[in-house]
Write a protein that binds this DNA or RNA. Structure first.
Length: 959
RNA sequence: GGGCGGUUAGCUCAGUUGGGAGAGCAUCUCGUUUACACCGAGAGGGUCGGGGGUUCGAGCCCCUCACCGCCCA
């Protein structure tokens, strides 16, 4: 005898181990089977399974299990990502917490040792957690983006090196001094994608840049109609800035070429109003399309080394780029004294030839009294100094705003919202910084990646994500791939003492290239996403031409969340298409489909994050409700294009569903249901059996359709509804009289069919709820294989419209009688008699055939055919037949009248609506015939029913 | 500022070529009929964000407004 409920805690680990041991997770070695491969989005190696992983991996496992049952050769390729910044950050924090030497004190080699240790210590965790979820990955093929520690000629490392070297040799990878996003906390460059622009309260300060030599001009301001609203003599140009500390690095002031206000002074020099008086720097006033005359004063200071827009302006106009900060974003303290540097800069401003990048970079234009200050401290000090000197633009506040009668002018500072860049990991303000970095020519790589989606070689689901993909790909910027970190793939570039660069897959090769010169390797590592971009083929053995690569590339589908379309999907597309070619040299896509799923949020719709403390731990949910419930909950909510809000209640509901299924199986066991050898469902004779088989076939088709279209929620719902609302609620109840009756043939057929249909339910539910279905599979029959590798049900020829319509009729008879009973407050235990009045021969036959079912399920003592409604009856109309329930002594005539009147009203509403519609000539003329016919039929049905109900009411009135 | 998505029952959400709205949970009533109370039977509850348009017909298509969310600048 089976237990009353499924015990996930006991069963899951055992079942999982069985699967793994049986080799079920490995792709089957059948050359005729279709290949189906999904590569897992590799989680951070030292991460923990969060609810987003749970969703992502549930959906993958659903497809994987489905395809496996279909008979495909299925590979779900697992592995983890080394997650450069994230992992290094964790280990550095640990060192700090344990008061151990810092990364820098420790040195690179020792530090990396520690990271590998940490990986070893915590690395397996998430893979264990995926197992708990039921993920059926081929663990024997697990890969790590960094490869194996200390391995010689490690393949995963070789793949990265080869890609870098080839891109370099093809001119698609280059090194240069560029303005990049600099994270002062981690002291590394990061890519555009790792920057989050957040709107914060900022200020806009207005300062006067005095014209050189005390020159003056007439400043004229006009309104929209050209009327002069302000005209004054000025000896300065007014500049607005949100970042005063960068004034020190200004190379010019720019105004729009059409801006008449400043036309008189274009080409003049003006003075940066900060720094020691005797060394005030002069910079030219230039024109450029960039300044918006409507914004601020219309004049923009150009600080090429600390602002992306300014950088472009500076490049266009040959304005020197003066770097002001060090790697921690403190004001530079290196280099020559300010006086000397300022003099150099002065010469450049006056037209001297620009020296080399490196020479300009060596110029430190931070005056001594600001050197070494944090950038924000420097800002405060500079504002104070400028204001003290009287070079802040002053305004006179409205008298009402201040107490004094004669308000004093105050510095003009606007409070305004500004977009400030923050590091997505460090959460500190990112500094645009001029540094030497490696860049991939993403624009070039993107071309094929765009084309592949345009021409449908790769398709996004839902399709609207393609727009996002195109938008980004078509405006893609060079990809900064170097990171000033230690944990990662060290860039395979070596330098000789003269600055010569040698890019090669190994040090030996580089030395050979250099002709034996003394070389030093580039200390930087590659962006983590550089290696994960290779994941669809590196995990399959590339650069070796392995069987797996041959068989499983392109992958079938990639399943991921939208937040990494740019980070990952786009880059896999670029790298895959660039490096994987077919025998004709045609680029090969990494995957045919990309399914983008939602983000999982908390009950309130907030993005889950550790800092908000609203994280729902999937493992806790699994502990409480079982993996099946968690999986089903996620899959059933995975509608396209919407976020998922996770609630415990819903998980609980699906746990209950598992129990329901369990008990249905238990019922089958108790009634000795089993599928006899050679059972052919097409041969069943009982209507009930024909009907449930017909329903089953429709359900299997619905599940298949849902999965084929990546509508996981619909597939899950179809399986759920069938199992609970059709199989359990109706079929098992219909089966009871047969299973407990004396007709041995009918009993045998019913046992066989019920067991057969239960198996179907187990199979279609297995992708969603693998554990409980596997456990039941084990317990409900003699099985040749585990369910995980059982054949997907391929049903055909079982649809049966006649059985469907008879059972639908039966269900509505039972439901209606139950409703009347409930509404008339008939005690649940009372056995009533029913009289069917006006039944045709056909209906009479139906009643005859299903008498025991109606009696049992509607709790009737007897059901007879009659010519007239007995007195004191409650009545309900189904089709042409009135079912009367004599309730002598029980019936409340008032209540019954009210009930029938209510039904009549409802019918009237429907009839009026339909009559109006059918009375509309245009409807009849324009609507498809089928629709018109359907509406006519409905009207006919409702009208007939109304007549019967009216009769019923009149009988009551007479009583 | 540009783009995308959302607004449907008290809550969370389905609703796939436009033919008068569904589920789960919650609520109310009844029920222990030996598969299941992690259950069963029944009920109530929505002018599908507002306005306009196209159409014989709009939750669904178009326009517009409002609010919410995300991405990009």
């Amino acid at each position: 005898m089976m237990d009353k409920t499924f015990n996930p805690a006991e069963a899951e680990a055992r079942i999982y181990a069985d699967w793994e041991e049986s080799g079920a997770f490995k792709p089957k070695d059948d050359p005729n089977a279709d290949p189906f491969c999904i590569v897992i989005p590799p989680p951070n190696v030292t991460g923990r399974l969060h609810i987003g992983h749970a969703l992502n991996n549930t959906l993958q496992d659903v497809l994987i299990r489905y395809k496996r049952m279909l008979g495909d050769s299925v590979l779900w390729q697992p592995g983890t990502d080394h997650a450069g910044i994230a992992t290094q950050m964790v280990v550095e924090r640990q060192l700090a917490e344990r008061q151990e030497p810092s990364r820098r004190d420790m040195g690179r080699e020792k530090f990396l040792e520690r990271v590998w240790d940490w990986k070893a210590e915590s690395g397996g965790q998430i893979m264990t957690q995926l197992r708990r979820l039921g993920a059926s990955c081929d663990w024997s093929r697990e890969r790590f983006t960094m490869g194996e520690k200390d391995a010689e000629n490690d393949q995963m490392q070789a793949a990265v090196m080869k890609v870098f070297v080839e891109l370099y040799n093809q001119g698609l990878m280059y090194r240069g001094k560029r303005l990049v996003n600099w994270d002062p906390k981690f002291e590394t460059a990061i890519s555009d994608l790792e920057v989050e622009n957040i709107e914060v309260d900022g200020h806009m300060w207005h300062f006067k840049y005095p014209l050189a030599g005390g020159k003056t001009y007439t400043y004229v301001e006009k309104d929209a109609d050209g009327n002069v609203v302000l005209e004054e003599e000025r000896d300065y140009i007014s500049i607005a800035t949100t970042r005063p500390e960068t004034m020190l690095g200004d190379g010019a002031v720019a105004v729009h070429p059409d801006d008449e206000r400043y036309a008189p002074i274009v080409g003049e020099l003006c003075e940066i109003p900060v720094g020691p008086k005797e060394h005030r720097r002069l910079i030219p006033i230039i024109t450029d399309e960039y300044p918006d005359p409507e914004f601020g004063s219309g004049a923009v200071k150009i600080t090429g080394a600390h602002d992306f827009n300014d950088y472009e302006v500076a490049k266009r106009n040959n304005i020197p780029l003066y770097r002001l900060m060090d790697t921690r974003a403190a004001m530079r303290a290196d280099g020559a004294p300010y006086a000397q540097c300022a003099e150099q800069a002065m010469a450049l401003a006056k037209g001297a030839d620009l020296p080399s990048e490196a020479e300009v970079d060596a110029i430190n234009l931070v005056p001594e009294n600001y050197r070494g200050l944090d950038r924000f401290e420097a800002r405060e000090k500079i504002i104070a100094d400028i204001t003290a000197e009287g070079l802040a633009v002053m305004v006179t506040p409205e008298a009402k705003d201040v107490d004094e009668d004669a308000p004093q002018p105050v510095p003009y500072v606007e409070n305004k919202k500004i977009q400030q860049p923050f590091g997505d990991r460090s959460h500190v303000v990112i500094e645009p910084m001029l540094t030497d970095q490696w860049f991939a020519n993403a624009g070039e790589l993107a071309k094929e990646a765009i084309a592949a989606v345009e021409d449908g070689r790769t398709t996004f689901h839902p399709k609207n994500w393609e727009k996002t993909y195109f938008e980004w790909m078509r405006n893609i910027q060079p990809w900064c791939v170097s990171r000033q970190l230690w944990w990662g793939h060290q860039i395979p570039a070596w330098y000789d003492e003269d600055g010569g660069v040698y890019v090669a897959e190994s040090e030996e090769a580089a030395i050979a290239q250099a002709g034996g010169k003394k070389l030093t390797r580039d200390p930087d590592v590659l962006d983590t996403w550089f290696s994960s971009a290779l994941w669809p083929f590196s995990t399959l053995g590339w650069p070796e031409n392995t069987q797996e690569l041959e068989r499983f590339y392109p992958n079938a589908v990639l399943i991921t969340a939208f937040d990494i379309i740019f980070f990952w999907v786009a880059r896999m597309m670029m790298q895959g298409l660039h490096f994987m070619k077919d025998e004709n040299g045609k680029p090969q896509i990494p995957f045919k489909d990309v399914y983008i799923h939602a983000l999982v949020r908390d009950e309130k719709g907030q993005k889950m994050s550790k800092s908000k403390g609203n994280v729902i731990d999937p493992l806790e949910l699994i502990d409480e409700f079982g993996a099946d419930a968690v999986r089903f909950s996620l899959a059933s909510q995975a509608g396209q294009g919407r976020d998922i809000r996770m609630s415990k209640q819903r998980v609980e509901g699906y746990r209950n569903f598992g129990t329901k299924l369990w008990n249905a199986a238990r019922f089958c066991e108790m009634n000795e249901c089993a599928v006899p050898a050679g059972f052919d469902p097409k041969t069943v004779s009982q209507t009930v059996n024909k009907w449930i088989l017909s329903e089953a076939q429709a359900t299997v088709a619905a599940v298949e359709k849902g999965l084929a279209e990546y509508r996981f929620n619909e597939a899950a719902a179809a399986a759920y509804r069938f199992t609970w609302n059709i199989f359990c609620d109706w079929h098992l109840e219909f089966a009871k009289p047969l299973l407990q009756g004396d007709d041995e043939a009918a009993k045998a057929e019913c046992r066989a069919t019920t067991a057969y249909v239960l198996d179907i339910a187990l199979k279609i539910l297995h992708p969603f709820m693998p554990f409980v279905t596997e456990a039941l599979w084990e317990q409900t029959g003699q099985r040749d294989t585990h369910l995980i590798v059982a054949d997907w049900p391929r049903l055909e020829g079982l649809d049966d419209a006649a059985a469907q319509s008879e059972m639908d009729w039966l269900i509505s008879v039972i439901t209606d009688i139950r409703r009347v009973r409930a509404e008339m407050n008939v005690p649940a235990g009372a056995q009533l008699n029913a009289v069917a009045v006006g039944a045709s021969g056909e209906i009479a036959g139906c009643i005859e055939r299903n008498r025991p079912l109606i009696q049992r399920m509607a709790r009737l003592a007897e059901i007879t055919l009659g010519d007239s409604v007995p007195p004191a009856s409650a009545q309900t109309v189904i089709g042409e037949t009135t079912f009367a329930l004599p309730l002598e002594g029980v019936i409340d005539f008032g209540a019954e009248r009210e009930r029938i009147a209510k039904e009549l009203k409802k019918l009237d509403g429907e009839i009026t609506r339909l009559e109006k519609k059918l009375g509309n000539e245009k409807f009849v003329a324009n609507a498809p015939e089928a629709v018109v016919a359907e509406q006519r039929e409905k009207l006919g049905d409702y009208t007939a029913q109304k007549a019967k109900m009216a009769e019923a009411l009149s009988r009551l009135e007479q009583a």
